[in-house]
Design a binder for these strands. Structure first.
Lengths: 339, 339
DNA sequence: GTTAGCACTCTACCATCGAGAGTGCTAATA
DNA sequence: TATTAGCACTCTCGATGGTAGAGTGCTAAC
């Protein structure tokens, strides 16, 4: 599936121009703007070929060409590494991360915000999570006679809190004792390991462990941590989303978190930065969109996901660089925490 | 500012009809649809008065009337209690809350989602937070030699986690000891009280306390907890947001959390459910919107906020009932937790 | 293989026009 | 005096048609 030099040059010109101006591009403008030593007639011939081979589409019979998904795909493949972010941008990003380095709820907020800002599209980011969560520490705090707050701290600094209705009363001392005992004996264990252990007679302990296992199981089997989305304001500037209908379906997808996560999951299986274009996304609602997305964290174990969602007509080179840089930064930061 | 019986009836008819169909309403349709024993000519006379008094506006000289902000205001005031939610709806809501009762991260998600669903507009909700946060317990967990995870549990089950770069190495034992000591001596204190205490010589303790105070201060002085927004998909169905420009400014406001929080703060000062219409909101970007919103929690102490944002042309009666019911439910639930 | 020339196609824009909805006014009516 | 019928007037909205311009495809010449 490789094109001759000239076809490729012209296809890239078409895609590039269309990305810039969102208007079908004609043979004349290519001939003049790109310094090719070819007349518009020649370019028309080439474009006819490109259309026949499915790389471009014509909105109507006497209109210029717009890239098909196949055309975008060829364009993206031929980009190579993509242009790196400028030094100033990289420094700006590093600086901002430095500001929030200690509060890692902020990491995903910042990532999503920066991606949105750089790409002028949607930025998405989820916190990293271990595939098999391991307990680090457990706290039990009495709230009312039978109501207890259970705080679970996982390795990697993930935290869950949950209310627990005790079956029988317990003093704060008893709760502390139980929490300490459990923290010690369960340190570093996954939920199947916890489940496999032999539990004595203490009904309190039993109840807490049961709840703990339930929660860890639910968490490990679930999808990602919550996904942060930023940059909605940019999307509405794009001509492809000026009509109401597309915006609405896009919103429906974005608000149906489970759905978006399913899409991301499917993408995340593979390594490295993924670029998924239009119909390559399984879902109808995202036919007009492309994703530039990657997982990060320790391969196969801890995983999070960050990326960019936008119209197919996006700046892929820049988006890829941005996602690459931010994912490496996130990798760096969580390596410190998960040590 | 009270209208005669007839004027009021007609104004309410206009506002009600306009809310239904989003089209300027004419004298003829009022005369026929509302069973008034009046001819369209009479209604035209009344409408001329209403226009002169500023309750309605004409898009152009020979068009029907659309409510002004003043007209909406009168309509809302005259609604009285508003229609209650149906029994089925209330049971459905209660049931859903019951499902997530133990995980209160979910409370705001669910509230926002339900409000959005009921009102077919944006639902917003923030978690409750104490005005003066009080420490409940502190945990210190070694991650690397000089890197420690500090987990702070507040009264009311709010939790913060933060990374701490230690000035000198400390074993997990030392960290535990310090955390226990501090948890005990600081239990129930606010940050000024903590600051006022006399701190011994332990550099570790000093550092932890300093960081703790910084964080609590930052938190107490900040705005609300993060605000959850749901229902974007509904907004785009509304005719007033079909044009690109308004959507974009709305998005800009929604994504600028600090800004939205400022608006909400201003509103939250007062008690009970607030209905804020168009120009009554200080912000230009929200001129086309109305808010139905209320704080909840213990007055003057613990506060959160939930509400509905939509076009001025919203179903106020239903929105008010929904916000009222959900805020009472949230009150109920946090009363249990905060005791 | 490339290009100039030209007829053809399609869109986007503008002006025009008529139907329809709705008003304001006036005069007649209860 | 309050209400109503009647009517001329105003404004929007959608359809229609006509034109300029951009761009193509084809053919013949280079």
């Amino acid at each position: 599936m490789v094109l001759t030099q000239r076809k490729e040059t012209i296809l890239k010109a078409i895609v590039g121009d269309y990305i810039d101006v969102a208007v079908p591009v004609g043979s004349e403008s290519i001939a003049t703007k790109h310094g090719l030593q070819l007349s518009s007639a020649t370019i028309r011939n080439v474009m006819a070929d490109l259309e026949a081979e499915g790389y471009i589409i014509r909105p109507h019979s006497s209109a210029g060409g717009v890239p098909s998904d196949k055309g975008y795909r060829y364009y993206v493949e031929s980009l190579g590494g993509g242009e790196a972010l400028s030094l100033e941008e990289r420094m700006m990003i590093r600086h901002q991360f430095h500001q929030v380095a200690r509060e890692f709820e902020e990491w995903t907020h910042l990532s999503a915000a920066l991606l949105a800002q750089i790409a002028h599209n949607l930025g998405v980011a989820s916190l990293p999570r271990a595939r098999h969560s391991r307990l680090k520490r457990l706290e039990l705090i009495a709230i009312q006679e039978l109501l207890t707050l259970m705080v679970i701290i996982f390795q990697g600094a993930n935290i869950k809190r949950e209310l627990l209705n005790l079956e029988e009363t317990a003093s704060q001392q008893e709760l502390d004792y139980t929490a300490d005992r459990l923290s010690e004996s369960l340190d570093g264990l996954t939920y199947p390991q916890i489940q496999a252990k032999d539990w004595g007679d203490s009904p309190l302990e039993k109840q807490v462990v049961k709840e703990l296992v339930r929660l860890m199981q639910w968490q490990d089997e679930g999808d990602y941590e919550e996904l942060h989305v930023d940059g909605l304001r940019h999307i509405f500037g794009q001509p492809e989303f000026s009509s109401g209908e597309r915006v609405r379906t896009l919103m429906e997808v974005l608000e149906d978190k489970s759905f978006l996560q399913r899409v991301l999951q499917q993408i995340y299986q593979s390594k490295g930065i993924q670029v998924v274009i239009g119909s390559e996304i399984r879902d109808d609602a995202l036919q007009h969109c492309s994703l530039v997305i990657t997982g990060y964290g320790f391969p196969g174990d801890i995983k999070g996901v960050i990326g960019i969602i936008g119209p197919k007509r996006m700046n892929y080179a820049r988006s890829i660089s941005a996602v690459r840089y931010l994912s490496s930064l996130m990798d760096e930061m969580i390596t410190e925490v998960y040590g």
